[in-house]
Design a protein around this nucleic acid. Structure first.
Lengths: 343, 343
DNA sequence: AAACCTTACGAAAACGTTTGCGTGTGGAAA
DNA sequence: TTTCCACACGCAAACGTTTTCGTAAGGTTT
């Protein structure tokens, strides 16, 4: 089995020094044209490719971005990754993706692993457990070692670094306003428990929209779902014998589950009850009825996050201490799960 | 800004040699207990972590698996990745994921990039373009440099290496048989163009099942869809004025699109027409009606692929020339888009 | 006191690169 | 003939490890 060819081997074959080979391949004027051509021909023949590891060691940078996300089997996160890859590849960076599986420990392990030589910087959305535990030492440690970190979506207010988020509250407000503008009065919200930052923010946006319409906040219309895998039965119990004319769900799954429950209860969506979701994924697009949602523009988030990180990576040391928070606009995608305004 | 601490720095601080520090951290008996403790305390204090890059260079292996898939925003592939990550992490391997975006060029670039030092081996599902082009030089080159490659799902018969696949034909046959056993006679198939290996295989399985039931093959019931983004209108035209009592779709999207078209044509699923899909994704589970499908067990595929690769990576050289093909069993997941047998 | 053995540590090579600087060779200028 | 300068190339250090081998100091045996 052929092994990878190195400078040393080429040098030996051609009976020159390693440095000569290296310089020849870089077209250095130090080396005669003749030798240069000979070396290059040989290198092509043997398919020489410089060893990235050796380069990383020498240059003290890997040209690699580490991305850590809570779940890999998740449409939103993969669209973000898509965006990251796009600009990373443009700029000659590699992308390593690890999932924390929403586990604090795995997040720490992955981060330490990548931090010890495999990546130059991080793009990170923190695990649920991390948000619950409020232990961010691994992030701060990484940053204190000079590696920039960009947080996205599930961010941490207490950590000072670059961030890319959507305005969750505003998005939720837009969603709720849309329902209100359709004439809905009794709007339920299906949200997550409070320690999930985005869930809480969306709940806030919902409440804010209601207040702006002078609608009294009604705790009976708020369902905070803990066990996502079992959401349908929770939603079922919640919606039973409850008079609502609209449902705002903070994610796709809650939205379609709600629709199923409503159907089972003999209600029509959107005619009897309007439903609006959050995150524009596969389900929203293809479900019947297709879902009106707030789109998070995941790819844009990835693009912006990668740009922020690479800026920091390649910027000079002076601007290193400046941190930015980019807010990606959400948009309302109107489909059929809410009535049209001009009906 | 603190920089990462190295053996050299610890050595200088403690006024011993680098080798002493290295040995002390490894609890070598060569070093006195006293020195060992001092060094370890210091290392902990400064949060010393060995530099992976240096280790990779020295050991000539990276403990990293490169995964290249055609699309990152794709439920099936992410489940496979989930499986790969599972066993990789167990065995102390890192996973780098790159998407080829179904582009041959990007597949080659990613592979060369990872091959030049970043990964010890590959798990790969080839891009559409690669299947069309039939150019596999990058894969063979990688293998000839001593890096093992495991192909999965979209494999290449011409390349000799480890492979993990499902029996697509058999799965399709199972699906078709299920429809036949429900009494369906006029079964349409929505498939891909032939150069997509899995599409072709599934079509073959469908035909085989029909023949076993002595049903004549009818070309009018076969739709080969080229433009996936526009499949719904293609399906619409195809199904118009066609008397069918069942549809077998080779993926989720075709299946739900078919159901939509059928609904629009006033047909009920499953009562008028039964529909069965392939790949058990989000849509299949949550769509109404929920889809009967053939599950590919993506996570299992990832697990098996990773095991094969790591075996090769850690096996001795003697068994290197043995290649295995693992066939993952598919299973029929019965939901509501097909009538129950005992109705 | 000579010969030997432990103990505890350091030197150096190796992994594959890049690059600043030193140097031998040849020809041209003086 | 001597001096000088390009030219073309090699040496060696550096990146951070691990590991083999060498060795100084000190103690133990004869």
């Amino acid at each position: 089995m052929k092994q990878k060819v190195t400078l040393k081997q080429i040098a030996k074959e051609l009976d020159v020094s390693i440095s000569t080979v290296s310089k020849a391949l870089k077209d250095s004027v130090e080396i005669s044209l003749d030798t240069r051509q000979k070396v290059k021909a040989f290198a092509k023949l043997y398919n020489y490719k410089p060893n990235n590891i050796a380069l990383s060691l020498k240059n003290r940078k890997t040209k690699t971005i580490g991305v850590i996300i809570p779940e890999i089997v998740h449409h939103f996160f993969t669209t973000v990754i898509g965006g990251v890859e796009k600009v990373a590849n443009e700029k000659g960076y590699n992308v390593i993706i690890c999932s924390s599986n929403n586990s604090f420990d795995k997040e720490v392990i992955n981060m330490e692993m990548l931090a010890s030589g495999s990546a130059d910087g991080f793009i990170l959305s923190v695990a649920k457990e991390t948000q619950l535990k409020k232990d961010y030492h691994h992030i701060e440690e990484t940053m204190s070692q000079g590696m920039p970190v960009v947080l996205f979506d599930r961010i941490i207010d207490e950590v000072v670094c670059d961030k890319v988020i959507i305005d969750d509250a505003k998005g939720a407000q837009t969603a709720t306003n849309h329902l209100l503008s359709l004439g809905c009065k009794k709007i339920a919200i299906l949200t997550t428990v409070d320690y999930i930052s985005v869930g809480k923010l969306r709940t806030n946006g919902y409440l804010r929209a209601l207040r702006a319409y002078d609608i009294e906040e009604n705790e009976e219309l708020v369902l905070k779902i803990e066990d996502i895998d079992n959401c349908e039965s929770e939603i079922h119990d919640f919606l039973e014998n409850k008079e609502v004319d609209a449902v705002f769900a903070v994610n796709e799954l809650f939205a379609v589950s709600a629709i199923k429950v409503l159907h089972a209860q003999g209600k029509n969506v959107p005619n009897d009850v309007a439903v609006i979701g959050f995150t524009d994924g596969i389900l929203s697009k293809h479900f019947i009825p297709s879902l009106t949602t707030i789109s998070q523009h995941g790819e844009d988030m990835g693009i912006r996050a990668a740009k922020l990180l690479i800026d920091k990576l390649e910027g000079d040391e002076t601007m290193t201490e400046e941190y930015r928070t980019v807010i990606i606009d959400t948009s309302l995608v109107q489909r059929t799960s809410t009535k049209k305004s001009n009906d």
